[in-house]
């Protein structure tokens, strides 16, 4: 008869665990968010060109603010659209 130790892993314990979000600017030491690089900023907007919230991107407050400013500057210079359909 199986002991209790065997029964412990009958279901995968990793299911339902979420990967921890992190701020990529802090982790990779990026100090400046460039507004002239639309390809990079595209990671922080959704398909309609709206800025993604912090709870999805995982950015720290400091860098979320800078990303938001950079996106707004890029929009003014027509590097990113104000409104779009199927941006990605």
């Amino acid at each position: 008869m199986a002991s209790r130790d065997d029964i412990k892993f009958l279901s995968n314990p990793n299911i339902g665990q979420k990967r921890k979000k992190y701020c990529r600017f802090k982790r990779y030491g990026i100090k400046y968010v460039d507004y002239k690089n639309p390809e990079f900023l595209l990671q922080f907007v959704n398909e309609q060109g709206k800025i993604l919230p912090r709870r999805i991107t995982g950015n720290s407050l400091k860098y979320q603010r800078r990303v938001a400013t950079a996106i707004k500057r890029a929009r003014h210079l027509a590097l990113l659209p104000y409104v779009a359909d199927n941006l990605k």
Binding site: K31, Y32, D34, Y35, H76, L77
Partner: peptide, 18 residues
Amino acid sequence: RFLTVKLDKYGVKFNEDK
């Protein structure tokens, strides 16, 4: 269209590295 921006020290370094 135009946009004038003041660069902080990280911006200056970024442009140099670029």
